[in-house]
Design a protein around this nucleic acid. Structure first.
Length: 572
RNA sequence: GGGCCUGUAGCUCAAUUGGUUAGAGCAGAGCGCUCAUAACGCUUUGGUUGGGGGUUCAAGUCCCUCCGGGCCUACCA
């Protein structure tokens, strides 16, 4: 048994996430966590909401709520949806927690002591009417290069030229439209990442087994131009972790907060602490996952994220940890994902284009989404969701191949032998062949799951389902029953046991259906089939079972057309 | 502009890192079965691997070039 620490990129607080966000981190992380638990490993699976920053303040203002109240409410909503998708977090924390505040301030203090924090006075745009400094992209104006009148302060979307907000002609606030802007001096803290460039480079170089997507992004940032640049880690905002050195005040930084990208990854650690405190456990309980001097030296730490999050996880956060000089656990493996597109374009939170988590659950159970999303995870490149593909995959894989197998076996048994596992008959070559094939396939499935090759794992799992249908077709118990009922009984006995094995193997992908299958078999034994022959012998003759309801109903053409029309436009 | 990824059957993806005749699933066609959610099984049609050039005994894989798609480019998170 090993110990695995698993974190999923933490979703931002300002709204409900779409399926692209879900498949880019939380869902694959859950698959991996569930699998490892089933294999008998000790797992700590953490996630949280990322609650600080300008967009959270603006979203709260739009909702006419105090930002703390807004975040508390949205956290509950996101927690409810993650439960709905059966994401099995040990703790779904909040980056606004007291635990994170203390840890963030602690890291800042350590980095300051190590000489890795620099105070920089810079000039930023302040909006009088908004009463706040504006991030570059919240300033709009006319592009000095191409004349586009909706250019943003960081870049012109029309001609792609990178801009400084002061370059804009007729600049105005993108929030209020106000033109009452002025440039003010303000002091900020910078994390001296550049001082750790060699250390980070050497560390990334060790990670030859990481996805190319992960290492190439890290190397680019490390070596592009003048190399890794220092990064501002504070902002002039109200909502966030107040700037302190540990628990001591930070002279000159009063009224400022840490930048979300400084405190957000620290929440990975803080959520473990939230978990421990919630359970009434002592510090040692969470430190054994996070401190290599307190038990975490044998922990394997795996992070899941979309490609947009890679720089922060390969550079900024490791720099924070390394720079602290304390033995915090560094990530061992980063699994990153490309994007999931929606029907020919991008999912868009702002335009409401695509399917969002709440909408998805309102039309179909979580397992449908889990199966399609995971079996099409954007691992090697961007992937695309279409309703036709979704309907075909789900109907074929879940309803026809798996669901129908359960249905045909249980119903056949009920009609010929009743709802107890029949006795009599013996196994022959067909059973030997099936066990041989399943053994080979389950071992391959394990390899793919161990490697977090998600699409390959899904294909192999599906192949084990197909093997059951092939077995039934070749042994034809309905025909055998007429000549030799004992032989039919043996076939059915094995097939009913196969349902239990499928439930166990399928559980990481489709946990609800797996539970229904186990419940129908009146069985609580969900132990992993290390030995297929033995696993197919768990349910003895005479053991009662139920014929379950249809596990997966099919998606009709009318539903597909209806949904396609409903989700193409703007979210209401 | 720079960097990275990508282009393989109608669709979604593989191809043990340069090694036999490029494979699966879906869709299509044919046959079989009748236990089952009109489900299942078997067989089968589809490919000048985006175009062109090069290296090599050997190229989907390496190099050059052109064409297409995507991402990143540090103040969105």
């Amino acid at each position: 048994m090993s110990r695995y620490l698993i974190t999923s990129a933490i979703p931002y607080i300002n709204g409900i996430k779409h399926l692209g966000n879900l498949v880019g981190s939380q869902l694959p992380a859950d698959l991996y966590a569930r699998y490892l638990r089933q294999r008998g490993h000790e797992v700590m699976f953490l996630c949280a909401t990322d609650e600080h920053g300008t967009p959270a303040e603006l979203a709260a203002a739009k909702a006419q709520q105090p930002v703390a109240e807004y975040c508390a409410e949205m956290h509950k909503v996101q927690k409810g949806l993650s439960d709905g998708f059966r994401l099995s977090f040990d703790k779904f924390g909040r980056s606004s927690s007291p635990q994170n505040r203390e840890l963030t301030q602690h890291f800042a203090g350590r980095l300051y002591d190590a000489g890795l924090i620099e105070e920089v006075t810079e000039r930023q745009v302040y909006s009088q009417d908004d009463g706040r400094f504006l991030p570059d992209r919240y300033i709009e104006g006319t592009c000095p290069n191409c004349g586009y009148d909706k250019a943003r302060g960081d870049q012109c979307e029309n001609c792609t030229k990178q801009l400084d907000p002061t370059d804009l002609i007729d600049p105005k606030s993108a929030i209020s439209g106000s033109t009452e802007l002025e440039v003010r001096e303000t002091k900020h803290l910078y994390l001296r990442q550049s001082a750790m460039r060699d250390e980070l480079n050497a560390w990334i170089d060790e990670k030859a087994d990481w996805p190319v997507l992960t290492t190439s992004i890290a190397k680019k940032w490390l070596n592009d131009g003048d190399g890794l640049r220092d990064r501002g880690i504070t902002r002039d905002l109200d909502w966030g972790v107040p700037v302190k050195r540990g628990d001591a005040p930070w002279p000159g930084m009063e009224g400022k907060v840490f930048y979300v990208w400084f405190d957000a990854p620290i929440e990975y650690i803080a959520s473990a602490r939230e978990w421990a405190e919630e359970k009434g456990l002592d510090d040692a309980a969470w430190q054994r996952w996070w401190r290599t001097d307190k038990g975490a030296e044998d922990v394997r730490y795996v992070q899941f994220m979309g490609k947009d999050n890679v720089p922060f996880h390969t550079l900024s956060f490791p720099a924070t940890i390394m720079g602290s000089g304390e033995p915090w656990k560094l990530v061992d493996y980063i699994k990153s994902f490309n994007y999931l597109n929606y029907d020919g374009g991008q999912f868009s939170t702002s335009q409401g284009r695509g399917v969002f988590m709440d909408q998805a659950l309102s039309i179909l159970p979580a397992d449908y989404w889990r199966w399609w999303l995971l079996s099409h995870a954007p691992e090697s490149g961007d992937a695309e969701f279409t309703w036709e593909n979704f309907q075909q995959s789900v109907n074929k894989d879940l309803a026809d191949v798996l669901g129908n197998f359960v249905s045909r076996v249980t119903k056949f048994c009920r009609s010929k032998f009743g709802t107890e596992i029949p006795s009599g008959g013996s196994y022959g070559q067909a059973e030997t062949d099936l066990i041989e094939e399943l053994t080979r396939r389950v071992r391959a499935y394990e390899t793919h799951m161990d490697n977090i090759d998600i699409r390959k794992a899904a294909m192999e799992l599906r192949a084990t389902w197909v093997a059951g249908n092939e077995y039934l077709q070749s042994t034809a118990p309905w025909a055998a029953y007429k000549e030799d009922p004992d032989r039919a009984a043996a076939i059915v006995r094995l097939s009913l046991n196969l349902i239990r094995v499928y439930a166990v193997l399928s559980h990481p992908f489709i946990p609800d259906a797996a539970d229904q299958m186990l419940a129908a078999m009146h069985c609580a034994d969900d132990s992993w089939p290390d030995d297929i022959a033995a696993a197919l012998d768990v349910l003895p003759a005479g053991h009662a079972f139920d014929v379950p309801d249809v596990l997966f109903r099919k998606i009709t053409d009318d539903e597909r057309d209806d949904w396609q029309a409903r989700f193409s436009g703007v979210r209401d």
